[in-house]
Simulated assay, not measured.
Amino acid sequence: MTLTVSATVERWPVAGEFIISRGAKNHVDVVLCEISDGTHSGAAEATPIYYEGESAEQCVEEITRFAARHPDLDRSVLLQNMARGAARNALDCALWNLECRKSNKALWQVAGLPEPAPLTTAFTISLGQPEIMEAHARRAAAIGHGLLKLKLSGQDDSERVAAVHRGAPGARLIVDANESWNNLDIAAEAERLAQYSVELIEQPVSAGHDHLLSGVKSPIPLCADESCHTSADVERIASYYDAVNIKLDKAGGLTEAMAIAHAAQATDMKIMVGCMLSTSLGIRPAFALAQLAHWVDLDGPLLLAEDRIDGFRFKGGKIFPAH
């Protein structure tokens, strides 16, 4: 069946500023992809992986070009012929949504995932001076966020984590080193952070330098992010990490993201489901997958100045199913 595919760029302002070690953002450009069979239509959103050189405009061009070459588009064609990334994520998730519309079933039913229930989601504390991060953590805790994710830089990280712990002493913490600990004693860094309710350290070393974790005895589980893009990566990194952060944009769609989750389960790695900055449309498929996760980081819409009108509901540190 020949499908009609369209893709456009949308710009969404960030609430304040989103800061990590790679830079600051005051808006996010996302790709809106729509697929129609003439009777039913499916839609999805993807966020370009900017640190891999993707842009929204390039993703739109890639989607348009691929759809023109493959008029009989389906998910198997995508996996076999399109590189992973945000463009493939947009197409893959739009195809899933189209299937849901045609079958009049929810995504979890079509994909064979657990029925969605509310989940505790991390709330991101942007990189900043310790006193600023402490203030942000205090405000987040005051409105019910009990799981905070801190962006770190490899410099003064223990001071930042201590400050956040002071601001939100009852909160569970995830720290995201963003590949910045290559030249540090990782076990010693983890030992310093263990006193602050830190329960996961994300991507301590640069992708491709995972061997630096060989023999490291960390009191806190280590989680791969940039080091794991597809299910084929899981076996390679399993000896270095305790968990894997699955992001649909990084994996190139829900289809591959589910394969990563199953591969992680097979190697006894724990699962985290995360996201890029996005609206609720962008995290809708991720929320379905997150029912399998030990940690959930789907606060993308919360970090925007506004969300889509039919978005998820966030309350008390939890994300509730969208209707």
Rank of each mutant, 00 (worst) to 15 (best):
A90M: 06
I132P: 00
R101A: 15
E115R: 13
L127M: 01
T120L: 07
R88P: 10
L79P: 00
N104L: 14
A83C: 07
R75L: 12
P130R: 11
S126I: 10
A90E: 03
G112P: 05
K102S: 01
Q129M: 03
A117C: 08
L98W: 02
L119P: 02
L79W: 08
M133F: 04
N104R: 15
L78N: 05
L78I: 09
S103W: 03
D74P: 04
V77S: 05
L78K: 04
L78V: 10
R101N: 15
L91E: 09
A122E: 00
N89W: 06
A94R: 12
N89R: 12
A90I: 05
F123T: 04
S76N: 13
Q80C: 08
C93G: 06
M133A: 11
K105F: 03
M133D: 10
W108I: 07
P116T: 08
V77E: 11
C93M: 14
L98Q: 04
S103L: 14
S76D: 15
R84M: 09
I125S: 09
A117F: 00
P118G: 02
A106E: 14
S76L: 13
A83S: 14
A122N: 03
Q80N: 13
S126G: 15
L119T: 04
A106T: 09
I132A: 13
A111C: 06
C93L: 12
T120R: 15
R84S: 14
A106S: 14
V110E: 07
S76F: 09
N81I: 01
L78S: 05
R88V: 10
L95H: 10
T124M: 12
P118A: 05
A94M: 13
L113G: 01
L107D: 13
C100K: 03
P114S: 08
P118F: 02
W108V: 06
N81F: 03
E131C: 07
T120N: 07
L95R: 10
A117P: 00
T120E: 15
L91K: 08
P118Q: 06
N81R: 14
L113V: 00
F123K: 06
L79I: 08
S126T: 15
